[in-house]
Structure formats: C-alpha cells, structure tokens
C-alpha cells in the first residue's frame, strides 16, 4: 500500500531528526499584525492582542508547593487590575478574602497565584492544582466563575464547578474555600448545592463576553504563572 510506505518513511525521518535533536525550524508566524487592530489576519492564533497589557516583569514565577496542606487559588490575568469586581458587582478583594478564609477555617494553607497563560477557568484551576502542594487547586476568573480542581483530572473536568457567576455570593466563595480544603483533608465532601437561573443568559451573557474579552486581552503565554501577593 503506497500510503503506508510513504508514511513509514516519513515517520522514520522525523524520529531520526527528533532524536538527533535537530528539529525542523518551526515556520515563522505569518501574521504581521503586531497587535495592531485591523491588521491581524488571524494566523497568529490570537496570541497577539491589540490591547495594552499590564507588564508583570519582575514578578516571581509561581513555584511548585511542597506543603501538603496547601490549596492554591489561580486567579485570572485581569484579576484585581483591569477588573476589580465580578459580573454581579462583588469586589474581588472580598471574593479572594473569603476563599482564603474558607481554606484557613478548615486548617489548610491558602496561596494565590495569577495564571497568565490562559483565561479559561478550568485550565486556571488545573494549573493551580498542579503547583499546589496538596494537588488541590481553585480556578477563579475575574468575572467570578470558579472551579475546584485536582491535578490528575482532565482539564475540562473538575471536582466542583460554579458556572453561573451572576448567582455567586461571598458566602459561596467562602464555602468553595472550605470544600477545597476538605478535599485536601480527604474528608467525604458534600458538594455545594447547585444554583440555577434559567434567565441568566438573557441578563448577563453580553456582559460576560465583554469581561472575558478584557481578561483574555491580558493573557501572556511568555509568563505563564506568577505568585500573586496582592490578593
């Protein structure tokens, strides 16, 4: 079979190249938008953004924790900078304060990092979990969407997900901190009872899109994850 032979030949060639440590040069990005609005042909895969980015130069890259009591909270790129309140107006200082308090109330140790490589809540949570001493992490978008994650789960899976940010209260955030801490302790955890507002899209989806765009504009893959002591 012709296709078969071609394929095997190609495989052999690449394996050799890769093992000899001389990979083919990656094709240069053909997009020359340089972040200029209107000039992007899209081929840069949205990695360049026209918005002004906050520089996190000098911030310490987040380290992998060793404390088995640790719960890491990964917050979004725009957290407490470009965005200061959640979609329903809760101040982010209070939100993070309550999550930390919840973790502490269960005798565990909170640490906050800012995930700059992604604006997706599940990936944020997973990144946090991966560098958490306990393997349990919390992802928190600036608009208020949250997730409790564990380092060995699929990225888009979770222990508990709170997709409807407009329904969140400070009490819920505190409970999230507590539950995350309970997973660390290996207790049987009763997941926080779900809430549902069937009209949430009509009321909030446009606002959610605008906030998420703002957060995504701050994504910086060159500085994936930093310690966030301002929380």
């Amino acid at each position: 079979m012709e296709i078969n032979e071609q394929l095997i030949e190609q495989i052999a060639k690449i394996v050799l190249e890769q093992i000899n440590g001389k990979p083919e040069p990656a094709a240069a990005s053909t997009c020359t938008c340089g972040g200029q609005p209107g000039k992007c042909n899209g081929s840069c895969a949205g990695k360049k953004s026209p918005a002004v980015k906050t520089s996190y130069e000098g911030y310490a890259p987040a380290k992998k924790g060793t404390d088995p009591k640790e719960v890491v909270v990964g917050v979004g790129p725009a957290f407490q900078k470009e965005i200061r309140n959640t979609i329903n107006g809760l101040n982010l200082d209070d939100v993070i304060g309550n999550i930390k308090a919840g973790i502490e109330e269960e005798g565990m140790v909170p640490r906050v990092v800012k995930v700059l490589k992604t604006s997706d809540v599940c990936f944020m949570g997973l990144e946090a979990a991966k560098i958490s001493g306990s393997g349990i992490g919390i992802g928190l978008q600036s608009k208020g969407t949250a997730v409790i994650h564990q380092k060995d789960l699929y990225p888009l899976s979770n222990l508990e997900l709170f997709p409807q940010a407009p329904l969140m209260t400070l009490e819920t955030y505190r409970a999230i901190g507590k539950n995350a801490a309970k997973y660390v302790k290996g207790e049987k955890v009763s997941p926080i009872e779900g809430q549902n507002d069937p009209m949430v899209r009509a009321k909030y989806q446009v606002k959610a899109a605008l906030m998420h765009i703002k957060e995504t504009e701050q994504v910086d893959v060159s500085r994936p994850i930093i310690e966030w002591t301002e929380a």
């Binding site: 209107g38 997706d120 899109a209």
Partner: peptide, 13 residues
C-alpha cells in the same frame, strides 16, 4: 455562533 466572542478570540470575523 458566539462561542468565539464569548471566549474572547473571534479574530474580527
């Protein structure tokens, strides 16, 4: 439609 807008990367399309 709309998912790319909501996820912040519609590339102006």
């Amino acid at each position: 439609s709309g998912s790319e807008v909501l996820m912040g990367s519609a590339e102006q399309k």
